[in-house]
Design a binder for these strands. Sequence first.
DNA 1: GCGCTAC
DNA 2: GTAGCGCAACGCTCA
DNA 3: TGAGCG
Length: 301
Amino acid sequence: MPIAGREVPVSKQDKVLFPQAGLTKRDLADHIEHVAEVMLPHMRDRPLTLQRFPDGIDADGFVQKQASEHFPDWLDTVDVPLRDGGSQRAVLGSSEAALTYLVDQATIEFHIWPSTVAALDCPDLLVIDIDPPESSAPIGEIRSVARRLQDLFGELGLLAYLQATGGRGFHVLAPLDRSADFEAVRRLAGDIADALVADDPNRLTTEFRKENRGDRIFLDVNRNGYGQTFIAPYSVRARPGGSCAMPLDWSELAGAWPNGWDMRRAHRRLAQKTDPWQRLHDERLACSPGEAERRLAALRE
DNA sequence: GCGCTAC
DNA sequence: GTAGCGCAACGCTCA
DNA sequence: TGAGCG
């Protein structure tokens, strides 16, 4: 794969990693080539968690946070303090070459922190994961939850952004001004989720344990934690069709499916549409978690 | 996917 | 040379 | 303290 500034070889390009769809490592490398320009701004300063599947998605893959000893020197890493006092060298996806190298290592899913190296302890993103049960839920209900989150975010002064996860649900996120730590942001996210659950307790839940969720849609706020991650925009998912996480405009929600974009459809889309998250990191649009929490409290009186 | 060890 | 093996996660919540 | 969860 010829990449501006650096030549990154991709081995075994014909290796089939998605048996059902017949997709190969070459398809993954091509995907990176197509999406790198819009993907990199959302990744470059965030520690990565990799999900690698050297023998394809039907075999056991593994999760990787610590950069391997054999990873090349030119791959950017960041020293991440661990809770037990130790630390870990985490990989950064700071260039197309880096992403291509990681694809060569059979990385299929790229997961990112909701904070950046500028302030690992203070998230610049709030993330709420709308996670339907494995039995799934009517698409209309799932979309309606996303819409309700958008409305509530708006009332709290939070800018709402939407992503189809490539799995069963959607992410709704908001840019933050880094004025609060994870504890405060997780509390805000929890309060937002609780407010929605209170209005629709038969369809929504924040129950931690799967067995207690029943067939309700799980509002997962646990991504708002130190060292926690969510699926990077434009990342492929380790699913039979090779679906992608896809940032969406809110106007697209009415016809959107969580796993509605495979690699080919993603490439066609990017050829004719700019990144809906283009302004996500415009600091002038970042919101204050403290202010949002105050507005939510006022709303509940 | 890689690297080390044992044959 | 190569087959086999070990390794590649963490933080949080609830019981 | 540890299993479950993502």
